[in-house]
Each structure stands twice: as structure tokens, then as C-alpha cells.
Design a protein around this nucleic acid. Structure first.
Length: 560
DNA sequence: CCTCATTAGATGGGTAGGTG
DNA sequence: CACCTACCCATCTAATGAGG
């Protein structure tokens, strides 16, 4: 079959031409004209500069022949971007990444997978590493990048990791949505009849962090599963596209290419399942993976003050549901599970700590006077504190402190903090989930054994009896307290709020500082700046930012 | 010189749903 | 509950050229 003879659907999108809008396009279609190159044949009827139109048609056609997606992408509305995959399958790459979580601030990319021309490839990344030239070369070779929710997730995540070459992202999530297939990629696959075979059927995206954790601890079966899971996601992308394309062409009335059977789309190749031999995996990756298992924080490698005593409390919303408690003194721990608030208070006083770190909201959103919804300020001031919004913006999932299910917890947190502070015991608010994200530990949701293991890896002495998740979160809260006492923390708070404490990698006193000079031309700003630079600082000017920005847009910088 | 049709670009409201 | 982003759609504006 002659592939060259097929008409890419994009050529019947007449509105791509300069000077043709929806009205002219539809009248042309009534005349039976549905190809850029046929438009100039009836240019007389168009009341436009005919030569301009003809040359524009040639320009776009040349872009198509030269397989330049950027020129064409600029002429397409967002929702027709998918036509680029049909128009240049040889320039298309299907992309999917795996990460340790959803936060672009605290989590890291573990694996980058892609399919190019029916061949699946992957690369392990992990903490402190960037993908090699192979991935970048693949993207440069195939700048039409197809993904699912890549606009919101994969692309920005990769951007935090490396300088991604120029790409045109085609997000199949929005295409599927528009054609009536909503939901996750799994859901879309299900509704379109795309099947996954093998045991990975049960693997969900949320399992990827646990697989990575196990892989970095030498479990190559887990690494195998993670790669295979990534492969199925990518194969799913290709299959989804092949199924959606005819529906999309019908919906968008680009019927001519349907008549010739969508030959181009047939050239979008679904990757074959790779043969992954465990022995090869070990040989290829052992050296990379093992260093990834070293915790970001241990009591040995950090400047943690080990003489102080901290109690961590994982508080629950009622006396009936037991709360977890942990006394931390150096690396030794004492754990307890206690229900009633009075007994919790007594336990804490008994431990005589330097600090108590409570996993519960310890203040209300500014303006609120009660935890319940009958508070008149409920409407005006909402149910969320600034600290919670801040965490959400960093991609850390957090429940608003006055959600109905959280109200009693908040009430009890404030009650306990008040009582302890009245006894002269310093008390801070902590959030174990955020701390675990920050310290690159798996949350309990990933799996309690994994959290337990990574707490042990910090050098903590934890008892060998079964430990419940409340106690593990109490331990984490206590660790946050130790970071606080060691001056390694960050305060998250809006004006008028008590701060939520999260651990930091650096001491506050070592945190980077900026010195800013402003003044008239010739005042000596540059001289002063260069002097400080010679003392080890980094020097920058506003105009340098402007210049690099201008350069990246291909402009020559000037004073205007 | 006016009117009309058309295109292109900007703006704002409303809405939906997702990644590991 | 509310995030954040992209999308969709309606509406508006400015610019253009055709035709009266």
C-alpha cells in the first residue's frame, strides 16, 4: 500500500490558512474543497489576495513535507493538536514518567519511559540524577510528545529536572474528554476496550512509589514490575490514540481523510512488550539504585541536636480513638497508644520533654471563632488556613482543618496545646505527611512496612513488636520537633496564624541570603556587587534576566 | 465615506477532573 | 472542601477589504 498517497487529516483543516476563518471554510467545503492545496484553485471566489493565500498553502504544505510540527502547531487550535500525531507519526513520541509522589517540590522522578516508532525505552532517574542524552535525543528527534495529563503533570515535573527541548505536547486526556471519555487513563482505556495483559493489571499509579522503594533496596522484581507498568501506560497511550482518532475526525468533520482510511494513523505504532531479564536489570542498574536507598536524613549524617527530648503526638479526634505517642531522646524511642486527652497530657508531662510536636491543627483560620459550621465566620473565612494552602501549592496533599471530619481533631489539638503551654511546655504543630515527603520517606499510605523501614534507616531504635501507623506518625512528628530544636525547619503560616513546622535540609542561619542594591546609574552598584561576588557570592543583574529571556525568544536584547 | 462580513486576537465566566 | 490548570464558549474589539 502506498503510504505517500494518504491525505493527512490536517490538510483538510482549511482554517489553518491565513485569511480563512470558519465562514469561508464552510463555504469552501460546500464546494467540495477540503484540502489546502485545492484552495488556490478557487481563489477568485475568495476575495482575498490570491497569491498570499496560495503561498500560505504552500508554506504549510512544506512544513508538512519537512515534518516541522512547530509551524503547524502555531496554526492549530489547542483541541486539534492531535492532528499532528496523524500528520507526523515519525515525529511522535509517547511519554510517561513515574515519580515517588505528586509533589513537584518534594518528590522526584524515578523513571522516564517513552515509545518511539514502536520501540519502548526507559531510563531510571531517581534523586539527584537527570536522564541521559538518549532521552533528550529521542525528544529532539520526535518533538510531538503525546501524554495523558502531561500538561499538568509529566511535562512540568520533567521541567524541574532538566532543560526540556522545544516540544509540542498533545495531551490525550483532553482529547478523550472532549469525545466523551472522561476519567483516568485506566478508565478511558476500559471504556475504549484497550486491554492490559499480565499481572500488572492490578498495579495502580499509586503503587509506583512502593515499587521504587523496594527497587532501591535491591528488590529487582519490583523494578521489573515498575518498568512493565510504565510500558503498559505508554502502550495504552498509543492504543488510546488509535481508537480516538477516527472518532475525533468524525467529530471535527475532517471527513476526507476518513474516506482514505486514515492511512497515516496506521503508521502510529504500538510498542511491543520488551523482554526484561532480571539478570540484565541487576547488571544495568544495581550501581545506580543502591545509592538511592541512602536516606536524606540520618541521625549520624545531620547536625541534629541529640541531647534534647521531644514528644511526638499523632492526635485523633476523640477520646475513643487512641492517639499515638512517641518520646524521642537521641535515637532511643518510647512508644505508647493512649485515648483520653487527660492521659495524653499526663504522659507528656511525665516525659518532661523540651518540646512537644503535635500532628493536629493548633489554630483556626484567621477570623474563625469556632470549629463548627454554625460559626458566622464560616462563609467569610472558609475552612482552610494559609499554611494548608501553601502545602497544597507545593503539591502536598492536606485536608483543610475545618472539614467536617477534621473539626473535632482541630478542637482537641487546640485544647491539648493550650493545656501543655499552660504547664510551660513548648508546643509546635507538625504534619508527618509533609515531613515524610520532605525527607524522602514513603508515607504510611505507600505501606506501613516501608515507612517503618525508612524510619529505622535514619538510625532510630524502634521496638521489634508490631508498631501501628499512629505511633509511626508520632515518631515522625517527634523528628520534626528535633529538626525544630536544631534550627533546621521552616515555618508555614499566614498572618495571624500559628506556624506549621516542616523540617528543612539546612539550618535557618545557613539559609541563602540575598543582598539587593538599587540606585542611579554609576552609583557603584556593580562595583559593590562584584566585591561581594569575590567573597563567594553569586552575582546577578535584572538586565541579565531580561537578556536571557529575550535570547530564549530569539530577540536581541536592548534597553526597550 | 459608510456598512457589512469576516478574521484574529483578547478577555472573562464557568466548569471539570487529574498525576504518582 | 477547594486546588489549579486548561478548556470551552460567549462576547468584545480592532483591523481589513469588498461593495454600494
Amino acid at each position: 500500500m502506498n503510504v505517500e498517497s494518504s491525505l493527512p487529516a490536517i490538510r483538510s483543516y482549511l482554517e489553518a490558512l491565513d485569511g480563512i476563518g470558519p465562514v469561508r471554510a464552510s463555504s469552501l467545503r460546500e464546494l467540495g474543497i477540503d484540502d489546502w492545496l485545492d484552495v488556490s484553485a478557487v481563489e477568485a471566489q475568495l476575495s482575498l489576495f490570491p497569491s498570499a493565500l496560495a503561498s500560505d498553502a504552500l508554506l504549510l504544505n512544506r512544513a508538512l513535507e519537512e515534518q516541522d510540527p512547530f509551524v503547524l502547531s502555531a496554526r492549530l487550535p489547542q483541541k486539534l493538536r492531535y492532528l499532528l500525531i496523524d500528520a507526523m507519526p515519525d515525529k511522535t513520541l509517547f511519554l510517561d514518567i513515574e515519580t515517588t509522589g505528586l509533589s513537584q517540590v518534594y518528590h522526584s522522578v524515578t523513571l522516564v519511559g517513552w515509545s518511539a516508532g514502536g520501540r519502548y525505552s526507559y531510563e531510571l532517574v531517581g534523586r539527584d540524577r537527570t536522564p541521559s542524552e538518549a532521552f533528550l535525543a529521542a525528544v529532539r528527534e520526535r518533538p510531538v510528545v503525546a501524554s495523558f495529563n502531561g500538561i499538568l503533570f509529566d511535562i512540568p515535573f520533567l521541567d524541574t529536572l532538566l532543560d526540556l527541548p522545544a516540544i509540542v505536547n498533545v495531551d490525550l486526556r483532553y482529547l478523550a474528554n472532549r469525545l466523551g471519555y472522561s476519567g483516568s487513563q485506566k478508565q478511558v482505556e476500559l471504556n475504549l476496550g484497550v486491554k492490559r495483559s499480565g499481572g500488572v493489571n492490578e498495579v495502580r499509579g499509586a503503587d509506583a512509589p512502593a515499587l521504587w522503594f523496594r527497587a532501591t533496596r535491591g528488590d529487582f522484581r519490583a523494578l521489573h514490575d515498575l518498568i512493565v507498568y510504565n510500558f503498559y501506560d505508554i502502550r495504552g497511550l498509543a492504543r488510546i490514540f488509535k481508537k480516538l482518532l477516527p472518532i475525533a475526525l468524525r467529530t471535527d468533520q475532517l471527513t476526507r481523510s476518513l474516506r482514505d482510511g486514515g492511512l497515516n494513523a496506521r503508521r502510529v505504532e504500538v510498542p511491543m512488550k520488551p523482554k526484561i531479564v532480571q539478570r540484565t536489570l541487576i547488571a544495568d542498574h544495581q550501581a545506580d539504585l543502591v545509592p538511592q536507598s541512602i536516606p536524606l536524613f540520618t541521625f549520624q549524617n545531620s547536625r541534629i541536636d541529640r541531647r534534647r527530648v521531644v514528644v511526638g503526638v499523632d492526635l485523633t479526634g476523640s477520646d475513643q480513638r487512641p492517639s499515638g505517642l512517641a518520646v524521642l531522646s537521641g535515637t532511643s524511642t518510647k512508644l505508647a497508644t493512649i485515648g483520653p486527652l487527660d492521659e495524653i497530657e499526663r504522659f507528656v508531662i511525665e516525659a518532661n520533654p523540651d518540646l512537644v510536636s503535635i500532628d493536629a491543627p493548633l489554630c483556626l483560620p484567621v477570623g474563625r471563632t469556632a470549629v463548627t459550621d454554625d460559626d458566622p465566620a464560616r462563609v467569610t473565612h472558609g475552612i482552610m488556613r494559609e499554611s494548608e494552602r501553601l502545602l497544597k501549592r507545593r503539591g502536598v496533599n492536606v485536608y483543610p482543618c475545618l472539614l467536617p471530619s477534621m473539626q473535632q481533631l482541630t478542637r482537641r489539638g487546640i485544647e491539648l496545646a493550650t493545656r501543655l503551654r499552660n504547664c510551660g511546655i513548648a508546643t509546635i504543630e507538625s504534619y508527618p505527611g509533609a515531613a515524610q515527603d520532605m525527607l524522602a520517606m514513603p508515607r504510611k499510605g505507600v505501606g506501613i512496612p516501608f515507612l517503618l523501614q525508612s524510619l529505622r534507616e535514619t538510625g532510630l531504635d524502634l521496638p521489634n513488636r508490631p508498631i501501628n501507623h499512629d505511633e509511626l506518625d508520632a515518631v515522625t512528628s517527634a523528628i520534626v520537633g528535633v529538626f525544630f530544636l536544631s534550627d533546621m525547619y521552616e515555618e508555614l503560616a499566614g498572618p495571624g496564624e500559628d506556624p506549621l513546622i516542616v523540617p528543612a535540609r539546612q539550618r535557618r542561619s545557613d539559609a541563602p541570603r540575598a543582598v539587593v542594591f538599587s540606585g542611579r546609574i554609576g552609583a557603584g552598584k556593580t562595583t559593590a556587587g562584584r566585591m561581594i561576588e569575590s567573597l563567594g557570592a553569586t552575582y546577578g543583574r535584572y538586565s541579565m534576566v531580561v537578556a536571557s529571556e529575550a535570547q530564549s525568544r530569539g530577540l536581541a536584547p536592548n534597553r526597550q
